[in-house]
Write a protein that binds this DNA or RNA. Structure first.
Lengths: 243, 243
DNA sequence: TAATTAAATATGTTTAAACAAGTTTAAAAA
DNA sequence: TTTTTAAACTTGTTTAAACATATTTAATTA
């Protein structure tokens, strides 16, 4: 539930932009007009605008106004967005998700695992291997490590549905920040066993460390995508580096 | 030149965090203390903290304080950061850059180019093809399209050095936002001709549209990276999606 | 008419204050 | 001693105001 005013304005403007209520390159109403429209202070509309700018939706211009620079992307590939579950991603991409559990075990982190995942040696973990299909086609192979201490009660049944729904809904965990790195890696035997890779000999790999609202890492995941169904989006803004 | 107070605080805190003046998982001084330390208002320190949070450096905790969650990455691969020139990236990765111009031509956008690059049909463009080497090893193949109207005067000599230095320094262009998509694509004949790909049959490809401070797109670039020297980093924060 | 000047309008930065809400600490009560 | 309560401290949201700076528009002047 978005209770904060700036979040309501953010969502409302975002929806208008995505629905092309404002055209690409069109100017948004001035801050003054938005203040009247939403009956709030200047700072509050500015916060909503700032977040949409960070999303790559808007370009504020000093003294001129704020321009819409959002362009809808054609959805051919499976786009990776913010922190979201496989279910949420599938829904956003208008595809039917299906998950098959390949492995579900518990283990204790050793030094090798600590180095790779960031979980301290001795940590109790769940290790899950899942094959993800979209519209019946197996496309993604996930290797998850969850910190047992913060995710206790996980079962294969939950892993087949939605782990995040369980963590947020049942356990009351607040998922906050995810650090991700994207690389291209050679296919493994497991990849080949479960995914039809044509003649590709590499996979698009997203590894992520995810933290709760206390800054404690509870998840390490390696998500291996079939290359031709993979698309990662990002918006960067340039920071003045001249000292 | 960072003239804004929040930017000075941002840079100062960032440096302290990167230099491990604060340890991983350590708490930062409270807002109150930072206000005294930097002699500024609460909003100003909060802005600096907010930007470092977006960078994945900090995790603010309601009622508790702000935790440092920055972990230095081991620099084995070539990491891709914000909007930066090849020169800037190379410097950040402590590598020696070298650029070889393969092609430098002018052309007019047709419908095919418009669809791919986002430049309107009829736009006058520079088209540049460049091979990028790091420490003597050819690793990246760049295909650039620059809108002539905003980048006039480009020459092969400039393209061999730094286009961004020319645009920002000489032309006074302000580079603002870059929308990027990351995909994995099959190698082309040109890739194979210039880059030693071992047995890899794909490349990591970053395509980007870059805008100036008026929201006008002046660049479209496809940057093709050798897979084993490529690493893309990203930080995502979860937005409460429950309505 | 054309150029200049001034006013109005736009976003950018900073400070101040008030209140909300979560967490910790210390005091008070059982 | 243990539990409860209250105070102190933390970050989160919102409003208000002032000033800076860039741009556009309108008025003025040459």
């Amino acid at each position: 539930m978005p209770k904060a005013k700036y979040d309501i304005i953010y969502r409302n403007l975002k929806e208008k932009i995505e629905n092309e209520h404002y055209a690409y390159q069109e100017m948004l109403p001035s801050e003054h007009k938005l203040i009247q429209e939403y009956d709030c202070s200047r700072n509050t509309v500015r916060r909503a605008i700032a977040e949409l700018t960070a999303d790559g939706y808007l370009q504020p211009m000093h003294g001129k106004g704020v321009r819409n620079i959002y362009q809808p992307v054609e959805q051919t590939a499976f786009t990776v967005g913010g922190i979201e579950s496989f279910k949420e991603s599938a829904k956003r991409n208008h595809r039917e998700p299906f998950t098959q559990i390949i492995q579900f075990t518990e283990l204790t982190a050793d030094e090798k695992i600590e180095k790779r995942t960031g979980f301290k040696k001795g940590s109790e973990l769940y290790y899950i291997q899942r094959l993800r299909s979209l519209n019946g086609k197996p496309l993604i192979l996930d290797h998850n490590y969850f910190l047992k201490e913060l995710t206790h009660g996980l079962t294969p049944e939950i892993a087949e549905q939605s782990v995040y729904e369980y963590l947020e809904g049942t356990l009351g965990l607040t998922i906050s920040t995810s650090k991700r790195t994207l690389t291209v890696e050679r296919v493994t035997q497991i990849d080949e066993k479960y995914i039809d890779l044509k003649d590709y000999n590499c996979m698009a790999v997203i590894t992520s460390q995810t933290f709760d609202d206390n800054g404690i890492q509870f998840e390490y995941t390696q998500s291996r995508h079939r290359p031709d169904y993979f698309l990662f989006q990002d918006v960067a803004t340039r920071r003045d580096n001249r000292r």
